[in-house]
Design a protein around this nucleic acid. Sequence first.
DNA 1: TGTGTGATAGTCT
DNA 2: GACTATCACACAT
Length: 195
Amino acid sequence: MIHLPRTFYARETVTVAEGLLGKLLIRHVRGVRLVGRVIETEAYRGSDDPASHAARGMTARNRVMFGQPGHAYVYFTYGMHFCFNIVAHKAGLPGAVLIRALEPLEGLEFMARRRGRSRPQDLASGPAKLTQAFAIRKFLNGHDLTSSLELYVARGSLASNEHVEQTRRIGVDSDGSKPWRFCVQPSRFVSRLKP
DNA sequence: TGTGTGATAGTCT
DNA sequence: GACTATCACACAT
């Protein structure tokens, strides 16, 4: 497997969000290899995007959004959940892509144990579900996905019968008009059936 | 098949 | 002190 290069991430955030669909997220943990295909993403940018953590400038939490593209941005939310993002932006701007859903391909048993659920469509069909299934927690915040063996993204593609659907972001109403959510269709692994 | 609600803690005002 | 880029379960239909 080959890591996606930094140049892939050093582009406009929305472009990267769409480009990540079909790519493979690889995680090595305790001798187990986990693989998931990216099914759903959302782009979060900078000062032009009120829903973004980076909208009001840099803080201790969001500083990796302002750093090098290709790094992991992991944050804790709702008192019990983690969300996994990949830093992606052009030079001088903040931005990250939230990974909202994965299609589990390898390591399903490991994921099922962590999730307490066995149906494949319940393992990683949501931003907090996939971090639980893939054992992604805050210690991976700031991790470089272009060189890590623990967590990285590799090439992958859509099937011939699949296409990209673009919608408004989920849970965002302050700025719901921006169609910065992308998902693979048809797929039963998206986080919500109806956007 | 869909809507409502509680759990729970880090972050920012 | 208020607010979350959520999930799982309960309950009604």
